[in-house]
């Protein structure tokens, strides 16, 4: 097994490679000359303009994928639940619902408030799912949390449909956004969400060594000098910010946060100081690759990235549930 820094470097190289593919490959085939011209900011013909549009989309896919991968890894650690994922735990749905309400009832426009509202919705949904999932004997078991989260997601999705029903002015854009994707992302939106994601990544870095202690059980974590409640709270905040901010721009994208940390754990082990950065790289790679795949699979149309990640993620979800050690994270 190669050493851990090798995998991390490989992950980073993978992100860069996928960013390259995401700019080069699209619905429209672009010549080399137009590619270079487009990259240097020229928009003289359609091909060059296509390149210019692919740049923010690529950045958003990389950032959003990293955010979802990291968020999923942190959620799995703090809940000790292998099924934890911002999609499954209802966090993305909470963010999406809050944004929909904001648009439909308060005419909320794209702004910092918009992202903040998404994060607030994500936090409320996370708290709600945790309370419901912890009720009853046995506390918050993995399956109870997953069920509570899935039920909450479904309920919020129906509520969202109810809200936009008869609102033809917004229905189309909301429904398109609900599928989850990075098509049409502009540099403005990337700039809007970047500070929130940066905060989320910083909190993730702070949390990594502490999650290692938390993995030993709450009592032993306290025994080695960790403030267990603080670690949980800050980690959860970071995970919710990452998932909520990403959902605000890209819509709810599922399964990245679930699948990526599991694959990274197989590669690099259970040390969060390595697992968290690799999960971020892995999430970026998955979202970039899914986005590129979505552009070429059904040419000349596009498949939204949320659909592609679901196709990849569902089999992984089934494999995890079928394994007997679901409880042993």
């Amino acid at each position: 097994m190669p050493p851990k820094p090798f995998w991390l470097a490989l992950g980073f190289a993978g992100v860069l490679a996928c960013c390259g593919l995401s700019i080069v490959i699209g619905v429209r085939v672009v010549s080399g000359a137009d590619l270079l011209a487009g990259l240097s900011g020229s928009v003289e013909n359609i091909s060059q303009a296509a390149i210019a549009k692919r740049i923010p989309r690529t950045i958003m896919a990389a950032l959003g994928g990293a955010a979802l991968g990291l968020s999923g890894a942190v959620m799995q650690a703090i809940t000790r639940n292998p099924l934890a994922d911002p999609g499954i735990l209802g966090v993305n749905a909470g963010a999406a619902f809050a944004v929909t309400l904001g648009i439909a009832w308060f005419g909320m426009a794209l702004s910092v408030t918009y992202v903040a509202v998404a994060i607030l919705g994500a936090a409320l949904a996370a708290a709600f799912v945790y309370v419901v999932g912890s009720a009853g004997p046995g506390g918050a078991t993995p399956l109870k949390l997953a069920l509570a989260g899935t039920a909450t997601s479904v309920a919020l999705a129906s509520l969202m449909n109810a809200v936009i029903l008869g609102r033809n002015d917004i229905a189309n854009s909301v429904q398109y956004w609900m599928v989850g994707g990075v098509g049409g992302v502009t540099m403005d939106r990337v700039g809007l969400v970047a500070p929130f994601l940066a905060l989320g990544f910083v909190l993730g870095a702070w949390t990594a060594p502490r999650l290692n202690s938390l993995a030993l059980g709450d009592e032993l974590a306290a025994g080695v000098g960790e403030n267990v409640a603080l670690t949980r709270a800050v980690s959860a905040l970071g995970a919710v910010i990452l998932a909520g901010a990403t959902t605000a721009i890209c819509g709810p994208i599922g399964f990245v946060g679930l699948a990526v940390p599991h694959m990274c754990r197989l590669i690099i082990g259970v040390d969060h100081r390595w697992l968290l950065p690799l999960s971020a790289f892995g999430g970026a790679i998955l979202l970039l690759a899914a986005d590129v795949l979505g552009r070429v699979l059904v040419r000349p149309a596009e498949l939204e990235v949320g659909i592609v990640t679901a196709l990849v993620g569902v089999p992984i979800f089934i494999i995890i549930v079928r394994r007997q050690r679901v409880r042993d994270l």
Partner: peptide, 11 residues
């Protein structure tokens, strides 16, 4: 401290 049932991360 060694509690009664500490957890070992899988693997």
């Amino acid at each position: 401290l060694l509690p009664q049932s500490p957890l070992a991360p899988e693997g």
